[in-house]
Design a protein around this nucleic acid. Structure first.
Lengths: 189, 189
DNA sequence: AGTAATAGTTGCTCTATATCAACGTTTTGA
DNA sequence: TCAAAACGTTGATATAGAGCAACTATTACT
């Protein structure tokens, strides 16, 4: 099993090397180019991706053709459209590599089979969902209660990596503001 | 076991009556008055609540003293500050009954013991987290990409109950707008 | 390496929503 | 049951951020 995924497991659950190796065949490797899409709006999501290197972005396009970024998965994180994966409905969001990336992917069927039958994977899925819960709770309060400058500060505090790696256009779409406004806010930091 | 909780289990997982009855002692009943608090900011959350009748609201107060409502749990739903429950950190949010309510509550320790050791409770927790994921994904896209009127329409579409039961002040705090604006938007519906 | 495309900046103007004030309506609790 | 408090409405005004245009800087493609 790939080292990055191995240490992900070890950080979250007690698991023996043998067991880990038995899970390995479920994950296949895929290399993608910068800007390549892994899922488009309207398609049903069939895979869960784990980022070995590079990063994935989850975003949707609203009625006015405006992109909204919901989540960015850096190396060592799972990233997929869980809403489509869980419900089996067509996705309202896109998955796109923002950099040349190396990924592992596991099919939806295999993943949920392991969630049901492998305590370690159950634990990991639980952790993914719990982490998402905590992050999005803060994100909702940020949208409700604070202005753009505070949201930008909060982003820099919680994910310092984002600003240096991701284009301002995409950061703006994550914060829910235009890139014009982001450009002006940076001057006030 | 209380009928409302029983049917909650039956809807989400296969479970025998005997097993259900063995889980029953973990849940205790509590009656609360309208506006009563079950958790305040700064306290560590120690219980998971299930609403038999009435409803609970989860909200926080920002720097300017403004209330922001994140979630409202009606009858037949679990509601608690999972962020505090999971992390063990003091809560940034309050839990308050919006109506005279009857609740079941289970301690954090018992709940996570059952999550680990009772497949049916594991399944239920997974469903709670997955549902929260799906709801908050939509909520984030709503905040990023759509104006207040559309957010109000989206709320009415997805939770028609809310408008008739909950004060406009609180609905405004859920939508991230002032009650003045909500009052004006209603005229445009 | 050189040119086209994309990303970022900044001034000007516009708009949605906040804020404040004043007032009518409903709810609540002694 | 009735007064006080909380809730809801509406006009006038203020403001954060959007939208547009024109420009510069950076990136990427053959």
């Amino acid at each position: 099993m790939h080292e990055v995924l191995k240490s992900y497991f070890h950080n979250l659950t007690k698991i023996e090397e043998e067991k880990l190796e038995s899970l390995s065949p479920y994950f296949k490797e895929k290399k993608v180019k910068k800007n390549e899409f892994l899922l488009k709006e309207g398609e049903v999501c069939k895979f869960n991706y784990f980022v070995i290197s590079g990063c994935l972005r989850l975003f949707s396009v609203n009625n006015e053709g405006f992109e909204n970024t919901r989540y960015i998965a850096f190396e060592g994180k799972f990233g997929t459209s869980f809403t489509s994966l869980i419900t089996g409905q067509p996705s309202i969001e896109y998955i796109q590599a923002l950099e040349k990336s190396t990924l592992l992917y596991i099919s939806k069927e295999d993943f949920y089979f392991l969630v049901e039958n492998e305590p370690s994977v159950n634990k990991i899925y639980r952790n993914i969902l719990e982490s998402a819960y905590i992050t999005t709770q803060r994100r909702i309060y940020d949208f409700q209660g604070t202005d753009s400058l505070e949201r930008l500060r909060s982003l820099i505090y919680h994910q310092p990596k984002i600003l240096s790696r991701i284009s301002h256009k995409i950061i703006a779409s994550y914060l829910g503001i235009t890139h014009y406004t982001l450009s002006r806010l940076k001057a006030q930091l």
